[in-house]
Design a protein around this nucleic acid. Structure first.
Lengths: 205, 205
DNA sequence: TTAAATTATTGACATATATCAATAACTTTT
DNA sequence: AAAAGTTATTGATATATGTCAATAATTTAA
């Protein structure tokens, strides 16, 4: 934050610009571009982002709050990720696994977001080649996170998945409604309850 | 391939360079750099790559063959991905979820690979900023793939996971030993057998 | 080409986790 | 502050999938 020009501190989207600046020094032109494309969005707990009416893909930077992504499969919701402050969510990349499996976003805490159109990001990559350095670094991080999610959910026992979750995502423990955690960990709410009850008996060394 | 300078066709690592060139026009300097850092590696089926002796992180481009990644957890191997031709595997990014969960690579078909040190890729990003465009695009793709893996493994029924696998990875069906498929789909070999037997009865419309 | 080893299939049984249901603890709304 | 609506907990039972075991089919090695 300290090495951002002062005037940026009050410019729209400065939180996102600051986040980028941690990855790579950011030119004033890029900062101005991002600022011009950023919109603040205050979303109440429980609301879904990205109305079905709007076909444009969007990215969201979480300033405050928490968002989950889920996919509907045969009627039931499967939570595929949960993220909090300083994360980028949404169309990180044309995630579109395919048409049937469209991802939905739900805010699970009152949240303040910055919204940017996917198209604006692509334009940024075109106009400012250095922006690709930032994009690449962010994607490296998100790739690793996605790998972790893929690994976590392959652990064969519910209890191990829960333990791994508490170990790798301590910032979410106690913050997220259990039903979402259960969905994220591929187990029912009841199973998660029982595992937690058991964990309280055998105190975590 | 057509728009690659002719002399590249015979240069070490040209398969990887060609792959990159599909994403973004590649300068002769970058091509030469990659070429200089590429080593061919022929690996027999069943062998593990990345000996434990060698601490350097490496990337591998699969020219021919197939490789799986797995993590050992409480004694058992969990296959987290399986990839064939034209994929990059290995330290796409310091995947290191953490020390305990180190990823292992095993070749599951006689394979021809190009090996590059992670460090060389980082150097490439430094010296040739345009390379970040390629890196970003590759990571976008790999992020999407990792999302798919994370989703697949969260499907609550073994049969649905198998169906999704056959639908999204048709190129692997019938090619990969069932035991690896089973591990990738988070089920036992026996369960996979039974699901396949059942699938044969109810012919796939 | 046979022998040895690995991988796949099928069956019987065990078990972790899902499902269904009733209540309790919270949260939000009025 | 009470009412209404969620979300969490706990119990009883069902079921999908794991485990163990015996063979069959393939693949690899001799």
């Amino acid at each position: 934050m300290t090495y951002l020009p002062d005037q940026l501190q009050k410019t729209p989207g400065f939180e996102l610009i600051t986040c980028f600046a941690f990855l790579h020094p950011i030119s004033e032109e890029i900062a101005t571009f991002i600022s011009g494309k950023s919109t603040y969005l205050s979303v109440k707990k429980g609301k879904f982002i990205r109305s079905t009416l709007d076909t444009k893909e969007k990215l969201y930077f979480i300033i405050r709050g928490c968002v989950r992504g889920f996919i509907k499969d045969e009627g039931q919701e499967i939570t595929t990720w949960i993220n909090g402050e300083n994360h980028v969510v949404g169309s990180i990349r044309s995630l579109g696994l395919d048409q049937e499996t469209e991802e939905h976003l739900q805010v699970i805490e009152d949240s303040l977001l910055i919204e940017i159109e996917r198209q604006a990001i692509d334009e940024m990559y075109e106009r400012f080649p250095e922006a690709n350095i930032i994009g690449r670094k962010i994607l490296e991080r998100y790739y690793r996170d996605a790998e972790e999610r893929a690994f976590l959910s392959r652990l064969p026992s519910a209890e191990r998945r829960y333990r791994r979750f508490t170990r790798t995502r301590p910032e979410l423990v106690g913050r997220i409604p259990m039903k979402y955690v259960a969905s994220y960990l591929s187990m029912t709410l009841e199973t998660l309850c029982r595992i937690r009850a058991k964990a309280l008996q055998n105190p975590p060394l």
